[in-house]
Write a protein that binds this DNA or RNA. Sequence first.
DNA 1: TGAATAGTGTCTTTCAGACAATATTCT
DNA 2: AGAATATTGTCTGAAAGACACTATTCA
Lengths: 243, 243
Amino acid sequence: VRRITSLVTEREFLENYDATAFPAVAVAVDLVIATIADGALHILLTKRPDHPACGSWALPGSILQPDEDLDACARRTASRKAELDRLQFRQFETFGSPARDPRLRVVSVAYLALTTAPPFLRASSGDERLAATVRYNGDETSLIGATGQILRLPFDHDEIVQSAVRRLRIDLDRTVDVFGFLSDEFTLRDLQIVHEAVRGETVNKPAFRKRMLDSGRLEPVGRKDEGSAFRPAELYRLREGAR
Amino acid sequence: VRRITSLVTEREFLENYDATAFPAVAVAVDLVIATIADGALHILLTKRPDHPACGSWALPGSILQPDEDLDACARRTASRKAELDRLQFRQFETFGSPARDPRLRVVSVAYLALTTAPPFLRASSGDERLAATVRYNGDETSLIGATGQILRLPFDHDEIVQSAVRRLRIDLDRTVDVFGFLSDEFTLRDLQIVHEAVRGETVNKPAFRKRMLDSGRLEPVGRKDEGSAFRPAELYRLREGAR
DNA sequence: TGAATAGTGTCTTTCAGACAATATTCT
DNA sequence: AGAATATTGTCTGAAAGACACTATTCA
């Protein structure tokens, strides 16, 4: 039986504490930034400018800085590496296999970030960013590059993407917030396209509309969609406080 | 625009890599070990033998060792600190506020672990372990100690417990595996008690039975519960391969 | 035989899917 | 008017809750 109370006060203990006694580890944040375009889910990849895996497409990520929150690190990474702001972030899993990074032990906290398509696709227009399409094969997913080839990501990034998509689909069933894919005002058709892209299959229109409207999370803006040919659709927004 | 290809090979890069250049962080694993007893959810707490927060009830946790997997660290912690083995582990969230530990920056990967009541309660009989009861107040939860008082945990452990219970209840709705609370063979009544304890409210018996049996995840053992007064119940087990 | 729990049947409500009809806008 | 899309209505079937009933075991 160990002693419960110590002869040293907590203050004395902390003043004499040797912080270098712990094993050397780095904590990183990796981002799965997703959007819906052309009715399909896309993931943003950046070309690695340095070793290791120099030149391959990979998830954007950063090493956690001292005094930086995990969420703040995710925001910083999106801003610096993908030039995207005002995303909706969701931490979904932490990856820590001992050999996942060849440099040193890196434990990576993975975030899912949803965004609307336009800035995402602008960001992907350069040489160093790519909007890879998610293709479903049953429960498995693969990433498709610009020329239709299957992309294999370095480190364990394929596994991270797999987990992110699984999480996104589960959250969708539970109606966890998926409005990060849309602008502030959207039509029910837009929302349906998001659901269909995430699920990879069509959904029943009347049932979908009823379910969404009955959820009480939406409120009509009072205006109609502009600029479309044919009958314009009613615009909705997410109700205040309904997360 | 940064250079994409490097004049240095990846091998040369890794040989000259300075691993001490990263900020000093420790990674820990904290466990929320849960069981069902007397129809209520309980969480295992251990009394901290050292500073900081020496003498308070807290979640068992360990610093991640070099070459140790996160899951392995969770198993080791359960074995060493709670003397429990063969638990069902689920990583659910990672906590990394800069000031959550006064010693140094500690990023903690939190695991939920389910176990059957008997060894759990034996573990709590000593002075240094406690099975705290979870009490629900709407969406909030609090931990109740042996004398009925509300326990406040050090660090951000209250927040970790809160998140663990929320996750458990969500998983229950999606029928994610909750059989870690039960022994290999159990009655439908046992399973119903688990569901009621996690949800904090009674469930409809016929509907519950039908739903469970129709799920195809259970199979009858062919024997009946022994040792109970009155009519004995049919024993079931989780079907092979039905996770 | 009675007490206590295990297990089932039936009715009703709710909700989602299928299918089709109606409404609105622009060319 | 006609094309194309938005929105609504109706029917049907699946599943859950409420409630009450039957079945089995032991004292």
